[in-house]
Design a protein around this nucleic acid. Structure first.
Length: 915
RNA sequence: GGACCCGUAGCUCAGUUGGUUAGAGCGCUUCCUUGACAUGGAAGAGGUCACAAGUUCGAGUCUUGUCGGGUCCACCA
């Protein structure tokens, strides 16, 4: 045991315990038949990640829960790990390569992937180390990565199983294509943002009467080059007799027909829609129904191809301008209207996504969604706060198939194989430049710096074979099988996280003990990407002994977004991001945690100053502990129970502690973390420091006071520990001289016998009384040399007694020479006689009040109480009400009635006294 | 177009099933430093609970509408 330094050096303390916890691996959990499991899986941060405020909040919440449960005696496992984050990570490494003047194509696939692994090995630990800095008590030895070999096995297994069940298929669809990342994206990965654009009205002339037109409206005029029809609603009178007529497509001079389709909204634009089957999902559907031609006018990089005629080689946005210019010149542009609409953007690079026709792998979601939807509807899985349930249900009910193939290199390779004997193009499928010429592997077309390898284009007519290991062709027996070039969506591995991290699909003790997990903590943006899919995966892949699918967790806690003081999302590009590590350096990790949780009711508006609150509280705990430690004899430090005592304040603080304990536990159990923290804060600062320690300071020589103060301090440290693990651990070790970490100590055990309601009532009254006296003292600037006269009315059962009993302590608390106590009216006319003359005040509990006003208020209260009584009596006399209402409602009404009556008597008594 | 959330003190937010005097933190005003803590202590000012109507003896709380702010979903060509 060392003496506490006068100043809380959080940097030193945090470093010390971070190391101690790590060296002793005290958060490592193993299956333990004597304990109940409690497990949480971390939302695995991106390996490219560095800690931001969102992580800090997310992990603090999990840490509070897991530390609480650990202290409650559960075998707690908080699974740690990182996500390979396919596109994001590939982009980061590509950027790094670009600085060296290289592209991934220059390296070739094998070398590039090696390079990403190197990068991962070098930087992937950063975020893990940063999580330790904020005190996360993860099961670090278990730390997993979504591309670990075993994890890869689980992913491959899942793909094959779903394929066998017919839940994975390959199909040619319009998908979201990012021309910059040059990969397909899922619907969720295309973020729709309101964008100010234009609606271009373009005239399409009739073949047989070139001076007459049908006008169509479009936001993407460049797609005109791929048009193969014009659609109208069958009921639209304007166009009814034009159906079947032939138009000449401007700029291209292709003959296209007008046809009708229900999908067309006659109220939008002109009611006539240009149909571009290869570049719009609706048009694709219509074209399929009506047998239209699919004309792809664009290369995967967003540059127009040969089908674009004279616009070939132009970027899509340049082409848009050129097309408009050309249409203007030929007087086919009727008008341009400003138009705001939601435009999809790549969630990794914000490039506008292109609806693009290509062959991709999809997961059929409806069958998977069914049990996952049911689980949330019937309450097996609960969202906190509850309102997210609706968001989830709405998405699940309208779920669409999931595009899972990505045309990138970093990720889980798709276990699909093509026979290069049957499909010779498989051998040479690697690079195709935009001019259509083939390049051999590692050959480059440097001049224009883009070369596209795309098996989804090159092998779109080939039949794959699905197998984890390289198969033999089931048609020709050849062993020259070439694996699909594509990798899987990163979320196709994340959705297995709750069980793949425990070794699934191998049956093993860890999985059996820790799965299903208990709670999941994440942000609302992730509900569709991850939460929903984990629930589906859980039900599909993990079954209990009876063969029923299992929910991967029971509770989902959705926390708010961390924003700056102005309410903007924190982001690097805005430059408004507060770095948690800077906050830790300046205020300490405990302060960071505490202040984040304090503000975590909904979205958080964070500025640097907010962390002062946390720092101040840590400081307060430190100093209160110093006071107690400096004044407590060693033998009084480790009592197991607070000593029986007549001391009112001691009885009170012990009672308050156990009341707080129950409230805090309940708040954590219902995921009300800021409420729990507030309770702890109020108890420790207001009750323990401001009142108990202040009152007890002068009698600290008393053994029982020492024992009580020290006991409550220690129990408080347990209570605060999940919120502020570092400062509490340090103080705990100093007080107890223990060798056991506070993290492994038990949560305070409820002891309702020690809750003395009478003491609580008396002390609370005394506190109000003192506040009232201080109020008077302050109003009249009484000096410590003066004496105050206090008068009490006869119906106050506590005041006089309490004041007499505690006079000595109180004199010092309110800094007055003395009190003269009289049992009299609650009028201060004479109460501060000698100091203030003839002022009519009363000092009811709560402070100085104007007598006349007070009387008026009391009269008003009496009046309203009388009305209330009349109303309730009337209702209780009404049979229609009493026969229908449940017994407890009637009881409640009667209780209220009684309460009102008593209150009226009370008020009338006081008024009588005052007059 | 559909769904959801929010509007309470200068600011950020609590406010449980409707019920005596609507709370906290920060900020503000006044006072207080011979040792646990000025990262502190004491006292105080500050609210027509967005607006309107309704249900009720009684509404910050329930219902409807209006205005204002935000979020999510959607095949607005």
């Amino acid at each position: 045991m060392s003496e506490l330094p006068p100043r809380f050096n959080f940097a030193e303390v945090e470093a010390k315990w971070e190391k101690y916890w790590e060296d002793n691996q005290i958060f490592h959990a193993t299956p333990n038949p004597d304990k109940k499991p409690y497990s949480i899986v971390i939302p695995p941060p991106n390996v490219t990640g560095i800690l931001h405020m969102g992580h800090a909040l997310n992990n603090t919440l999990q840490d509070i829960m897991i530390r609480y449960k650990r202290m409650k005696g559960f075998e707690t496992c908080w699974m740690a790990g990182t996500d390979h984050a396919g596109i994001a990570t590939q982009n980061v490494v590509e950027k790094q390569l670009a600085k060296e003047g290289k592209t991934r194509q220059m390296l070739g696939r094998g070398k590039f992937v090696e390079r990403v692994w190197d990068w991962k090995d070098q930087y992937g630990k950063t975020i893990i180390n940063q999580l330790r800095k904020i005190g996360s008590s993860c099961d670090w030895p278990r730390t997993r990565f979504t591309m670990d070999p075993e994890y890869n096995g689980a992913v491959q297994h899942v793909f094959v199983e779903l394929y066998k069940k017919g839940l994975i298929y390959r199909g040619k669809r319009i998908i979201n294509w990012c021309p910059r990342c040059q990969t397909a994206l899922s619907d969720e990965e295309a973020e729709h943002k309101e964008t100010q654009g234009n609606l271009y009205h373009i005239k399409y002339p009739f073949r047989d009467s070139p001076n007459q037109f049908v006008t169509v409206a479009t936001t993407r005029p460049e797609t005109i080059l791929g048009d193969s029809g014009v659609a109208v609603n069958p009921t639209d009178e304007r166009y009814k007799n034009l159906i079947g007529k032939t138009l000449i497509l401007p700029l291209v001079n292709r003959e296209i027909k007008i046809f009708s389709d229900e999908i067309v909204d006659p109220t939008f634009g002109t009611g006539a829609v240009k149909v571009t089957p290869a570049h719009d999902p609706n048009d694709f559907e219509m074209a399929t129904r009506h047998g239209l031609e699919f004309i792809n006018i664009m290369n995967p990089d967003g540059i127009l191809n040969e089908a674009a005629g004279k616009f070939t080689g132009m970027d899509r946005f340049k082409a848009r301008a050129a097309v408009i210019e050309e249409l203007k010149n030929s007087e086919l542009l009727e008008k341009i209207e400003p138009h705001t609409h939601a435009v999809g953007q790549c969630y990794r690079c914000n490039t506008v996504v292109e609806p693009y026709l290509s062959k991709q792998w999809f997961v059929r979601m409806k069958p998977l969604a069914e049990p996952a939807l049911k689980a949330v509807v019937d309450g097996t899985i609960k969202f906190h706060p509850d309102r997210w349930t609706k968001v989830y249900v709405n998405w699940m009910e309208n779920i669409r198939d999931w595009c899972i193939s990505r045309q990138i290199w970093w990720g889980h390779r798709i276990p699909a194989w093509y026979c290069s004997n049957c499909y010779p193009q498989a051998r040479n499928n690697v690079y195709i430049n935009r001019k259509g010429g083939e390049l051999k592997e590692n050959e480059l077309y440097i001049e224009n710096k883009f070369e596209t390898r795309n098996s989804s284009i090159n092998l779109q007519d080939a039949e794959p074979q699905i197998s984890i290991t390289q198969p033999i062709c089931n048609k020709c027996g050849s062993d020259e099988m070439i694996q699909d070039e594509d990798v899987l969506d990163t979320w196709f591995s994340s959705w297995l996280w709750p069980f793949a991290t425990f070794g699934w699909p191998k049956d093993n003790p860890d999985l059996k003990f820790f799965y299903p997990t208990n709670s999941l903590f994440t942000a609302s943006e992730i509900i569709f990407f991850w939460v929903a899919r984990m629930i589906m995966a859980g039900y599909e892949f993990t079954k209990d002994e009876k063969g029923n699918g299992q929910a991967p967790f029971k509770d989902v806690y959705i926390h708010g977004t961390v924003r700056d003081a102005k309410g903007r999302k924190m982001s690097k590009s805005l430059g408004n991001a507060l770095d948690p590590l800077e906050i830790i350096n300046e205020y300490g990790a405990d302060a960071l945690r505490f202040s984040l949780i304090m503000n975590s009711g909904q979205d958080l508006f964070i500025s640097k100053e907010k962390f002062e609150g946390g720092r101040n509280f840590a400081n307060k705990i430190w100093n209160a502990s110093r006071l107690v430690l400096l004044n407590t004899k060693p033998e009084n430090k480790n009592v197991a129970q607070p000593p029986p005592t007549d001391d009112l304040a001691s009885q009170w603080i012990v009672s308050k502690f156990y009341i707080t304990l129950a409230d805090v536990s309940a708040a954590i159990e219902k995921y009300s973390f800021s409420e729990a923290e507030n309770l702890v804060y109020d108890f420790f600062w207001k009750n323990y420091c401001d009142w108990y320690l202040e009152i007890s300071k002068n009698k600290f020589t008393d053994d029982k006071i020492q024992q009580t103060a020290c006991f409550i301090l220690k129990e408080s440290l347990r209570l605060i520990h999940p919120f502020m693990p570092f400062v509490t651990e340090e103080l705990w070790q100093n007080i107890t001289a223990s060798t056991k970490s506070l993290s492994l100590e038990s949560w305070p055990i409820a002891n309702n016998k020690l809750i003395n309601t009478n003491a609580v009532k008396q002390m609370d009254t005394l506190i109000s009384l003192i506040s009232a006296i201080r109020n008077v003292r302050s109003q009249f600037n009484l000096t410590p040399q003066e004496t105050m006269e206090c008068h009490f009315s006869a119906h106050d059962p506590y005041g006089k007694n309490l004041l007499e009993k505690n006079a000595e302590t109180l004199k010092s608390l309110v800094k007055l020479k003395d009190f003269q106590i009289h049992e009299n009216l609650p009028i201060i006319k004479d109460a501060v006689a000698g100091v203030v003359e003839s002022i009519k005040f009363i000092v009811p509990l709560g402070g100085l009040v104007d007598l006349a006003k007070e009387k008026e208020k009391m009269q008003q209260e009496i009046d309203s109480a009388k009305k209330s009584i009349a109303g309730i009596s009337q209702r209780l006399g009404n049979e229609a009400f009493t026969s229908k209402a449940p017994a407890e409602v009637i009881e409640k009404e009667q209780a209220t009635l009684l309460q009102r009556k008593t209150r009226i008597d009370e008020l009338q008594e006081i008024l009588k006294n005052l007059n």
